[in-house]
Simulated assay, not measured.
Amino acid sequence: MPICSAKGCRAAAVWVLAWNNPKIHTPERRKTWLACEDHREHLSKFLGVRGFLKDVVAFEEWEAPGDSGG
């Protein structure tokens, strides 16, 4: 079971926050954090104020770049 990326949280992840740091990653690169319902907004804001957040997708709908879908 995927777990939320928030420090100390052990709740099930239901969101994928796709991000990259433009100073060190190529534009197409996507790193991911996982978030439970309670931490989605906090983690999104943390990434957003830095200009890192690219997308927020429900975990069950997430396909990492390059995934074949199966």
Rank of each mutant, 00 (worst) to 15 (best):
Ile3Ala: 00
Ser5Ile: 06
Ala6His: 13
Ala6Arg: 13
Gly8Val: 14
Gly8Ser: 10
Ala13Trp: 03
Val16Glu: 05
Trp19Asn: 02
Trp19Phe: 15
Asn20Met: 01
Pro22Thr: 06
Pro22Glu: 02
Lys23Thr: 03
His25Arg: 05
His25Thr: 03
Thr26His: 05
Pro27Cys: 09
Arg30Trp: 01
Lys31Cys: 02
Lys31Thr: 01
Lys31Arg: 12
Leu34Thr: 13
Ala35Pro: 09
Ala35His: 07
Glu37Asp: 14
Glu37Leu: 13
Asp38Met: 10
His39Tyr: 12
Arg40Met: 14
Glu41Ala: 12
Leu43Phe: 05
Ser44Glu: 12
Ser44Ala: 15
Phe46Arg: 09
Phe46Asn: 00
Phe46His: 13
Leu47Ser: 09
Leu47Ile: 12
Val49Phe: 00
Val49Ile: 13
Val49Gly: 07
Val49Asn: 11
Arg50Gln: 15
Gly51Lys: 09
Gly51Tyr: 08
Phe52Lys: 04
Leu53Cys: 10
Lys54Thr: 05
Lys54Trp: 01
Asp55Ile: 03
Val56Thr: 15
Val57His: 01
Glu60Thr: 13
Glu60Gly: 05
Glu61Gln: 12
Glu61Ser: 07
Glu63Gly: 05
Glu63Val: 00
Ala64Tyr: 11
Ala64Arg: 09
Ala64His: 13
Pro65Gln: 05
Gly66Tyr: 03
Gly66Asp: 03
Asp67Arg: 08
Ser68Asn: 07
Gly69Ala: 08
Gly70Val: 14
